[in-house]
Each structure stands twice: as C-alpha cells, then as structure tokens.
Amino acid sequence: MSLWEFANPVRFMALSGKVLPWVIGLTALTLIPGLIWGFFFTPEAVNFGNSVKIIYVHVPSAMMAINIWVMMLVTSLIWIVRRHHVSVRAAKAAALIGVTMTVIALITGAIWGEPMWGTYWAWDPRLTSFLILFLFYLGYMALWAAIENPDTAADLTSVLCIVGSVFALLSRYAVNFWNQGLHQGASLSMDKEEHVADVYYLPLLLCLAGFVLLFIALVLIRTRTELRLVRLHRLEIRERMKDA
C-alpha cells in the first residue's frame, strides 16, 4: 500500500472522517492549555516586560503562514504531476487558513512593534516579506474565486502557486537587500527565536503544536468540504444534462 492510496477521494473521505475527531481533540488538548499557560503563567521578560506574552500568538501564526504556503506549493506540484484531486483541493482549503495566519502575524507584529520599536509599521525585511506573502495569498484566492470551471481553476492556480513561490522567494531576498541598502546596520529584527529561556520556550512549543494541529483539523474539514463541492458540482451537471 502506498501513500498515493489516500489520494483517492473516496478513501480520503473515509480515512479523514475517522481521523478528524482525534485531531480536533488533540488540538483542543494542546492549543487551549498552551494559550492559557502562555497568557497566565509566564513571567515578565527582562527586555520586553509582559509584552513577551504576544510571542505565543505571534510566532506560531507567523510560522504557520510560511509553512502553509509551502504546503500549498507541494500539493500544487503533486496536482500538476500526478493529478490527484485531493491534493489541489487541499491547497485551496489551506489558502484561507494561510491568509488568516498571515493577517494574525501582521496584526500582532504591528501591535507588538508599537511599544517595542515605537512604531506600528517599519519596513523591516521580515514585516515586508509578510506583507508580500499576504498579497500572494490574495492573488491565489482571487484566481480560485474568479474561474468557474473547477478543473481549469485547479490547473491555473497550481501554475500560479508554483511561479508565485519562485517570485515570493525572490522578493524575500530582494527585500533583505533593499532595506539593508537603505539603512545600513539599523536592523529592527530582534532575533526572537534565539536565546529564549525555557520558561517561555515550553509554552511556546505547546502553542506551536496547537497551531499545527488546528491547521491540520481545519484543512481536513475544508478539504472534505471542497471534495463534497466537487461531487455536488458533478451531480448538478448530470441533472442539468438529464433535463435538457
């Protein structure tokens, strides 16, 4: 038995239906305690004061924002190469989650930036990259929404996702270059992932796991919805052809 067995929509529906309650349960078991731990039971940090608590929503959402795009790239490639319906529907299902994560990362980053750097927005390479990532998500979703034929939409959005990934990566380096070019050495990055003590690290880890599980649960539900929509679409076409 190979992994591709799950690419069959029927098998996927059966399996994901069985797995889903477990994933939802695990999400609740990690995300809720993680967030509560992070919010109520973590001490102040020396440099950041209590504002360090924002890390528990900011870092997980930022990591998910990038990883979800990577997941969409992989599933789009699988669709282009092997034409498995589950794959491309999963990419579509993930897009809205990805864009939400990007918005959360941007908003929490801006709110955190105000007390830390004295400004809501700076054209710091990381912030700028996220704004660009947000634009790419928007374009991807807009293309899905604009095309009526689901198979054409699947093909075109996959092509866009692949080409877009290349340009997103290019933008990442371009932005690095561009900002350093403007203000030499005045970087605002805080290297937050490095030197974080265990008191903050453990709840952060739990939150990260919670966000990953939440994403898996949501993407399973949304992929199931998308597959049902495909089936619904087919049934409607068949009905219309019978009527005609």
């Binding site: 660009i132 634009l135 807009a142 933008s171």
Partner: peptide
C-alpha cells in the same frame, strides 16, 4: 496577480 510578481524586479 501580476503586481506581487513585479516586486523583485521593482526593488
């Protein structure tokens, strides 16, 4: 769709 793709060239 196109404007985000223009970013690296523009920068």
């Amino acid at each position: 769709l196109v404007l985000p793709l223009y970013i690296p060239t523009l920068i």
